[in-house]
C-alpha cells in the first residue's frame, strides 16, 4: 500500500510539478499566468498518442514532433493572448485572453480528437509493479527538466538573458536585450515543458481531453504552494500535492479526495498568499 502511494504520488506529483514549471517559465518573462499551461500537458499526451499510435512514429521522432507542436502552441499563445495585453498588465486582461485560448484549445481537441480517453503506448517496457515505467518516466522527465533549466539559466547566454528579463524587465530592455524574441522563446520553452509533462505522463493519464482543466488546476497548486516564479518550490509543491492527493485517494478515496486537495489549497493560500517559499510583494505606489 505504502509503495503504491509513493509510486503513484510521486509520478502524478512530477507531472503537476512540470506543469507548475510551465506556469513559472511563462510568468518569468511576461509576468503573466496563463490558463493554457494545463492544456499543454493535455496536448502533450494527445500529440504523443497521435504520433506514436495513429501515425506510427518511432519514440524519438514522436517526442520531438510532440514538443515541437506544443512549442508552436506556446508561441501562438504568446502572440495571440499575451503580447496584445501586456501593455495593460494591471487590468489583468491576460486572465481573460488566456482563458479564451485555453477553452478554444480544449474544445478543438474534444471535437477533432476525441472526448474519450485514447491509448498511450508503452515506450521502453522497462519495469513492472511500482517500478513500472509509467511511474518513473514522469519523475525522470521532471528531474531532467530541472537540471536542464538550471544549466540553461546558469551556463548559457540565452539563459542569462531570461534571468535578466525576469529580474528587471525595463533594465533588460535598456541593455538592448531582444525582449520580445526572448519572451517568445520562453513561451516555446514553457510549452515544450508542458508537452513533455503530458508525454511522460501519457501512460498514466492517457491522451484525454479532460486532463486539460484537471492539470490546469493541479498544476497551479504547486505554483501557489511554492511561490510564483520559484521552480524548486513548484517541484517540492508538486510532489507534496501528488503524495497528499494519492494518500487521500487511498485513505478516504473517491469523491472526497478532490475536496481534500481543494480545501488544503485554499487554506494554504489564505494563510500564506505568497506561497510557502514565496517572496514578498512588489511596491505599489
Amino acid at each position: 500500500m505504502l509503495a503504491s502511494i509513493l509510486a503513484s504520488g510521486l509520478a502524478v506529483g512530477a507531472v503537476y510539478a512540470l506543469i507548475g514549471v510551465t506556469y513559472n517559465t511563462m510568468f518569468s518573462t511576461s509576468r503573466v499566468m496563463s490558463f493554457t499551461a494545463g492544456q499543454l500537458g493535455m496536448l502533450g499526451g494527445v500529440f504523443g498518442s497521435l504520433f506514436l499510435v495513429r501515425l506510427g512514429f518511432p519514440v524519438i521522432p514522436a517526442l520531438i514532433a510532440t514538443l515541437a507542436c506544443c512549442a508552436v502552441v506556446g508561441v501562438v499563445t504568446e502572440i495571440l493572448a499575451v503580447r496584445p495585453v501586456l501593455k495593460s498588465l494591471d487590468q489583468h486582461l491576460y486572465v481573460l485572453s488566456t482563458l479564451a485560448l485555453a477553452l478554444m484549445l480544449q474544445q478543438l481537441t474534444a471535437i477533432e480528437w476525441s472526448t474519450e480517453p485514447q491509448p498511450f503506448p508503452k515506450i521502453f517496457g522497462i519495469g513492472s509493479g511500482v517500478f513500472d515505467e509509467k511511474f518513473w518516466l514522469p519523475i525522470v522527465a521532471c528531474a531532467a527538466t530541472l537540471i536542464g533549466l538550471e544549466f540553461l539559466y546558469r551556463r548559457t547566454l540565452i539563459g542569462h538573458a531570461f534571468v535578466a528579463i525576469a529580474e528587471d524587465n525595463f533594465a533588460a530592455r535598456a541593455l538592448g536585450l531582444p525582449e520580445r524574441n526572448l519572451r517568445m522563446a520562453s513561451y516555446a520553452l514553457a510549452a515544450a515543458i508542458g508537452g513533455l509533462a503530458g508525454f511522460a505522463g501519457g501512460q498514466l493519464l492517457l491522451a484525454f481531453v479532460a486532463n486539460g482543466p484537471l492539470l490546469n488546476f493541479y498544476g497551479f497548486v504547486p505554483v501557489a504552494l511554492g511561490g510564483l516564479g520559484n521552480n524548486r518550490g513548484a517541484v517540492v509543491g508538486g510532489f507534496a500535492l501528488g503524495l497528499f492527493q494519492q494518500a487521500a485517494n487511498f485513505l478516504v478515496g473517491g469523491i472526497f479526495s478532490s475536496v481534500a486537495v481543494f480545501v488544503m489549497f485554499i487554506i494554504v493560500l489564505l494563510a500564506a498568499p505568497q506561497g510557502l517559499f514565496g517572496s514578498s510583494s512588489a511596491r505599489r505606489v
Binding site: M1, S4, I5, S8, A11, V12, G201, L204, L205, F208, A210, N211, L214, Q246, N249, F250, G253, G254, I255, S257, S258
Partner: peptide
C-alpha cells in the same frame, strides 16, 4: 464499495482495498 473519479490516473488504491 466506492465511487471513483473516472479521470483518476491510478486505480490501484481501490483495487487494493
Amino acid at each position: 464499495q466506492a465511487n471513483i473519479d473516472a479521470t483518476q490516473p491510478d486505480m490501484t488504491p481501490d483495487m487494493l482495498r
